[in-house]
């Protein structure tokens, strides 16, 4: 299909992609910076009787309503941020134990607590392992608005194909930014199917009487997750083959780092980037491969080290490279800053 560029905000993009992926039902609660997506859905649903909308009393209820919609076989989803993201982990872990295709966009904002309202990368731990979770979920991290368009569609497909809760982990800068997007990149949508009132009777439980019963249930889920992970896991290694310094960055900072690497390469600096696209599952092999020639690793993130801890744990046995940290909790990191940091340590 021919390229079809449109000038859109990230909010428009998430909404458009969700509709293309077959989303039919949205339940949510307002919180900045994700509210505009909810507003957009409400507007669509007001004109289209096939689209369902529910504004609940809080995020736990929103998540439970999403689960209700999924049981009925509707592609149901929600969006949230910050403290709302904390609350929604409660229904999300229910979806995790019941293997339900719960789709959620999270626009990260600053923390702890109410923090700030637009931007941060501090909800990574929460997205990956929030609640009393075993991490049986997929977390995608789009790095720019084009990726946001494709990943939002993909998230619905991953959720329904593998029956895993799936999070698109963005931030308010990503969704408030107006930028050109090629909207011709449409991915064929997976089919949805009703779980309740469909064929045989189902009794779904989340509470087990005995430890060994739960262990057996979990072992099945772990095995399924491991098999699905091999299909789902994604990362980008950019100019890492000969890189002396490899930058580890994700999300919007990941794209800033990519632009920095492109500029530094023009100045003959042997710099590369490893950028996870799925934050969970995490591409351990890709990360290890990316640092083979590296004697320094620069970790850049808008948090106090949530991503850095994953990187260091992953690379423990793989490298003796020195770690340099560019941690800016709650603040953005520009290409220029990354470039300057590399020049300082090169």
């Amino acid at each position: 299909m021919a390229v079809k560029k449109e000038l859109l905000t990230g909010n428009d993009v998430v909404l458009k992609a969700a509709l293309l992926a077959g989303a039919e039902y949205f339940a949510g609660y307002p919180i900045t910076p994700s509210t505009e997506i909810m507003n957009g859905w409400a507007k669509e649903a007001a004109d289209n009787p096939k689209l369902l909308f529910l504004q609940t009393e809080d995020e736990t209820s929103a998540g439970m309503a999403v689960i209700g919609g999924l049981l009925a076989g509707k592609k149901t989803w929600t969006v949230t941020s910050g403290v709302g993201h904390i609350l929604i982990q409660d229904p999300l872990v229910l979806a995790e134990t019941l293997s339900l295709p719960f789709v959620m966009y999270v626009g990260q904002r600053g923390g702890p607590s109410t923090g700030t309202v637009i931007y941060s990368q501090q909800e990574l731990n929460l997205a990956r392992y929030g609640g009393n979770s075993e991490g049986l979920r997929v977390v995608y991290a789009p790095s720019n608005i084009q990726e946001l368009f494709e990943i939002t569609q993909k998230a619905f497909n991953t959720a329904w194909r593998y029956r895993l809760p799936t999070i698109i982990l963005g931030d308010g800068y990503l969704t408030k930014t107006l930028s050109p997007v090629d909207t011709s990149r449409v991915i064929p949508a997976e089919k949805a199917e009703a779980i309740f009132l469909n064929k045989d009777v189902k009794n779904l439980r989340n509470c087990f009487s005995r430890e060994d019963e739960l262990a057996e249930h979990l072992n099945i889920l772990f095995a399924k997750y491991a098999a699905a992970s091999r299909q789902i896991v994604e990362s980008e290694s950019y100019k890492t083959n000969d890189a002396k310094i490899v930058i580890f960055a994700w999300g919007t900072v990941g794209f800033a780092a990519k632009v920095a690497v492109a500029n530094l390469r023009k100045q003959n600096k042997r710099v590369g980037l490893f950028r996870p696209i799925t934050m969970r599952p995490f591409d351990d092999r890709g990360a290890i491969k990316a640092v083979q020639k590296a004697d320094k690793i620069l970790i850049a993130e808008s948090s106090g080290g949530q991503f850095g801890r994953i990187v260091r744990e992953t690379l423990t046995q793989a490298t003796d490279a020195e770690y340099v940290r560019l941690y800016k909790p709650a603040e953005g990191i520009t290409s220029e800053e990354i470039e300057a940091k590399i020049k300082e340590i090169y």
């Binding site: 800068y173 990503l174 919007t252 900072v253 800033a256 492109a262 990191i333 520009t334 290409s335 220029e336």
Partner: peptide, 10 residues
């Protein structure tokens, strides 16, 4: 050219 972060330093 490509645009990196939606904010900039200077």
């Amino acid at each position: 050219g490509p645009i990196g972060f939606p904010k900039f330093a200077k």
